[in-house]
């Protein structure tokens, strides 16, 4: 692996975080290329979600480096990381239940992000057109005036993906985007993700191996905070170490 390839969008090197001495992520390194869909799999407690938390600034790292297009993310505040171009979807759908689908998307539109910008934000035609476009992409075009609280679980997941898309991030991080979805919703989501990942880098955490095979460019297997195996889906699936700790059961 060429470690200083400037073509990497994200370079995670020696990333470590320790909670009271327990190293949830231990000198982890991996590299994400432009337009790559990287899927992170691994047993429970492997540190998958923690890695995403570290990249987006939700958890402060103990050591190491996360370099995103030349920015050292470990020194930046969460909202600055977002503005640099990193979007994050949480495991449980996090949408604003008291607001409508339209308003949910509007708040994620990348304009008017400081106090006075928000105070004097105008809902102009460009904003409306963009929201309409995203809503069609996430299958919610007929529900724009509906409160998010009344959406189904799958629709909330889509809405949150839409809220990220409207920001147009260069790196999109999705934490179990199909968890709790019906088979039909799962299929639609895979189709949605395949369209989204075409022009950006994506990191996905997922357990559903069929779904992983559908979307992954490369797969990283985490185990106890370290990389156990990395490569194509086929390679990883046939790796005896992976079969032993994860896929075997």
């Amino acid at each position: 692996m060429v470690q200083n390839n400037p073509n990497f969008v994200l370079m995670v090197e020696d990333l470590t975080v320790s909670f009271d001495g327990f190293k949830a992520v231990n000198e982890l390194s991996f590299y994400v290329e432009p337009n790559e869909c990287r899927v992170i799999i691994g047993p429970n407690g492997a540190g998958k979600t923690t890695v995403l938390d570290l990249i987006c600034g939700r958890t402060k790292a103990t050591g190491g480096s996360v370099n995103f297009k030349g920015h050292e993310l470990l020194n930046m505040r969460e909202d600055q990381i977002v503005h640099a171009g990193v979007g994050r979807k949480f495991q449980t759908p996090s949408v604003y239940e008291d607001l409508t689908v339209f308003e949910n998307l509007e708040l994620s539109y990348p304009k008017g992000h400081n106090v006075f910008g928000a105070l004097f934000f105008r809902r102009d035609d460009a904003v409306k057109a963009r929201i309409q476009e995203i809503a069609e992409m996430i299958f919610l075009q007929d529900l724009l005036e509906e409160k998010a609280a009344f959406l189904s679980h799958g629709q909330k997941q889509w809405l949150e993906i839409g809220m990220l898309l409207i920001q147009d991030p260069e790196l999109l991080m999705l934490d179990e985007p199909v968890a709790g979805m019906s088979v039909a919703e799962r299929k639609k989501t895979a189709e949605l993700l395949n369209r989204i990942i075409a022009d950006r880098s994506v990191i996905v955490i997922e357990h559903d191996m069929g779904f992983v095979a559908d979307i992954a460019t490369r797969v990283t297997v985490l185990h106890q905070g370290k990389v156990l195996s990395e490569g194509s889906m086929e390679r990883v699936q046939n790796d005896p170490k992976v079969i032993e700790v994860y896929l075997g059961h």
Binding site: C56, R58, E78, D79, V82, H83, G87, R88, F90, S94, V95, Y96, E97, D98, L99, E103, E106, L107, S108, P110, G112, H113, V115, A118, L119, F120, F121, E160, M163, Q167
Partner: peptide, 22 residues
């Protein structure tokens, strides 16, 4: 204003607002 809707959003999902770049 949008700020008013943001306040409601923050009350319910502060982290989501933060990770939407606010």
């Amino acid at each position: 204003s949008k700020l008013g809707r943001l306040l409601i959003a923050m009350r319910d999902q502060e982290d989501r607002v933060r990770f939407s770049g606010y």
